[in-house]
């Protein structure tokens, strides 16, 4: 069967190269690949933001303790800072609690107080940095107990906002994936329609070749090989066209999610533009022609085989 075309370039027995209308297919696929590249960038970007926000802040809590050296209200034998630390460390959902050093505190306050903050004789509250584990503690209960030990010391969670932001980012990511799926489905529909049109135009030729003993597999392979080449080329074109747009968008997004990745040491700085896009995109863009080719191949195979069932 494979020997139907035993020469290097497959023979065009079915006249597949002649139908002008079907030359539109690569262009349509290119447009869809362009859209897919944007959706892919959207999903990668949203995922990166969501991850950054979650890792950065969702797991951190700060607790300010005013009058840290005064005796604790519920156990006057220990200072408030010690007491609060003990409560925090004994609470499930808290991985660690660490009072910030003087220097760190100064660094933290510098935007407000200037570099001389350390030398101010202000009664600075002690600040405890708390790292959470798992779902984190029950904040309301924790707040009540801290209030009882050291009035005014409340846990301050960044988590609520971060959770809202990352829910937003996750929704955006999901939307991008839905868009990608839709693009793939539409591409399959377009390819199937183009294939059916091509089959109808070549009905006579197919009947003749079928009558000479061509199997369904042979005929489907002819159509599928051509569709695979066309969709791969079209999607390659579309992905290439999307590249400048993505680099431009990455440039715009840089202030919000700085340094997608650091350049590996010793790398030619002339290749720095490679670092402008996340690795996921550098992998995803070349995958577009491959995915398009796969969709083109599978859709055409199914369409042709199904159509051939009308012949005995």
């Amino acid at each position: 069967m494979a020997g139907w075309s035993s020469m290097a370039r497959p023979r065009d027995d079915l006249g597949l190269g002649r139908a002008l209308g079907e030359r539109m297919l690569p262009l349509v696929v290119a447009a869809m690949a362009f859209l897919a590249a944007l959706a892919l960038a959207g999903s990668v970007g949203a995922a990166a933001l969501s991850k950054r926000w979650q890792e950065g802040a969702a797991s951190v809590l700060t607790v300010q303790v005013p009058k840290a050296t005064a005796p604790a209200v519920d156990t006057p034998a220990v200072p408030r800072l010690e007491r609060v630390l003990a409560i925090l460390r004994g609470t499930p959902g808290i991985a660690s609690a660490r009072p910030l050093e003087e220097a760190e505190l100064t660094e933290l306050l510098r935007p407000w107080l200037g570099s001389g903050a350390g030398r101010l004789a202000l009664p600075l509250p002690a600040v405890i940095e708390v790292h959470l584990s798992g779902a984190g503690p029950d904040l309301a209960g924790l707040g009540t107990r801290l209030e009882a030990a050291a009035p005014g010391s409340t846990p301050e969670s960044h988590g609520v906002w971060v959770r809202r932001l990352s829910a937003l980012a996750r929704s955006l990511e999901a939307c991008a994936w839905v868009a990608l799926g839709l693009v793939a489905a539409i591409a399959a529909a377009v390819i199937a329609a183009a294939t059916l049109a091509g089959l109808a135009v070549r009905r006579d030729a197919i009947e003749i070749v079928h009558g000479l003993g061509a199997t369904d597999g042979t005929i489907a392979a002819r159509f599928a090989a051509r569709a695979t080449r066309q969709t791969a080329a079209g999607a390659g074109l579309g992905a290439l066209a999307a590249l400048p747009v993505l680099l431009f968008l990455a440039d715009l997004a840089a202030p919000f999610a700085p340094a997608g990745q650091a350049l590996p040491p010793g790398m030619d700085p002339g290749l720095a533009w490679l670092a402008a896009l996340p690795i996921a995109l550098w992998l995803g863009l070349p995958a577009l022609p491959a995915a398009a080719a796969l969709i083109g191949y599978a859709t055409t195979q199914m369409t042709v085989r199904r159509w051939l069932r009308q012949l005995p």
């Binding site: 069967m1 494979a2 020997g3 023979r11 027995d13 006249g15 006579d204 003749i208 003993g213 061509a214």
Partner: peptide, 23 residues
């Protein structure tokens, strides 16, 4: 029922190519 876009030679060669005969 000849294929109009193929030369006489290729029309006659068609069954042999389908059967996978050497070129």
């Amino acid at each position: 029922r000849l294929l109009p876009h193929l030369a006489a030679f290729d029309n006659v060669a068609l069954p042999l190519r389908l059967a996978g005969r050497p070129e």
